[in-house]
Design a protein around this nucleic acid. Sequence first.
DNA 1: TATTGTGAATTTTTTCACAGCC
DNA 2: GGCTGTGAAAAAATTCACAATA
Lengths: 215, 215
Amino acid sequence: MDKKKTSKGKKIPKATIIRLPVYLHYLTELAQKGISVVPSHDLAELAGGNGPQLRKDLSYLGEFGTRGVGYNVGRLAHHISKFMGLNKEQSVAIIGVGKLGMALINYKGFAEKGFKICAGFDNNSQMIGKKVDDLVIYDVRDLGKIIKEKDIEICIITVAASEAQSIADKLISCGIKAILNFAPIFLKVPDDVVACQIDLSIELQILSFYRTLLK
Amino acid sequence: MDKKKTSKGKKIPKATIIRLPVYLHYLTELAQKGISVVPSHDLAELAGGNGPQLRKDLSYLGEFGTRGVGYNVGRLAHHISKFMGLNKEQSVAIIGVGKLGMALINYKGFAEKGFKICAGFDNNSQMIGKKVDDLVIYDVRDLGKIIKEKDIEICIITVAASEAQSIADKLISCGIKAILNFAPIFLKVPDDVVACQIDLSIELQILSFYRTLLK
DNA sequence: TATTGTGAATTTTTTCACAGCC
DNA sequence: GGCTGTGAAAAAATTCACAATA
């Protein structure tokens, strides 16, 4: 997968891509507070970074600041949003409506960032056809049909580890190109599909290790 | 925070630390399958990496392989586990027993990796004193007392963004040194505390961006 | 023969310093 | 004077190639 290029043809570091949504989040918050201009140092501090790094990150997208002043909050938010393709609503499905899947269906944060959860899927007949918070739970066997009908672009996997790869394979065969996986297993996907892993236990293990370093 | 040093005094890259738990996970899986030796390439493939990188990663911990043969699964797992301080059970509390907190309390993966969820906390009087899956939900006001009583070392924050920083401050004042935060806000913590952020919307935004790169 | 362990080369990321501009 | 944008320097991480050895 190639990196996106700047207008000048330079590659944008992966590390920058990961920080852009954080900046976007705080820009939105500043805008809500009525703040219209922010210097790099202040925004970076909110986001847990530093001024020079933020400026370098933004410089890949273009020149959006004003020297001696700072960045226009609304303008910069708009540009990051557009650059990342986040300026339109995207439809999401959740595969596996257990406790975690249920929690994600109820999570308000997704809607705020433009992700609309459009369907839940499960293989448990007790669940199928039920509604969770106005959302219909479908049979996993109907994945292909519903994905087309609802124009779903991103799928979140919250099934057991043992089922996750076969669910991923099925999603890919349905044309899904983006998968967020909560099952503790590294998904094998072809080059034209992106998969992102969130393994809660591993996060705890890393945290725990850094804690032992403190003393 | 200093990096942990190898026996030879060299620093271990942060990137390596992040991969070690993944190796550990697959080593445990291999052991369960009765496989006792694995070459770097095979283990790396499971973990989504490559052979040379895995060998470089492990070389920071010492020499655990056998040339021409591979790594002894049990021995290597033991060493990674010990190195990361994961060879003893650790007590965890969850602050905020909403849908997500509830899902985490029920998550079986934590126990498998040696993290024992010992307490839930909430400020909703409807929840306090109730049991979720055998786990008692306490009043947030009793944080300090219960943390001491139960020797809790790690806390997971699953409250609303607006409350997260004040909860974190309270945890820190109770002596907690490791925080896993699910609220979409960058926590400010002193140098002698580690905080790790999982922002689900940001993960989706990054994923969504990489998806747009594909076409 | 097969596979590890590692120094060296390469690539990526971060930090720095300051010219350029408001 | 204050803050951005950026090339250059430094640091970190990855990849490579191959000597060492079971």
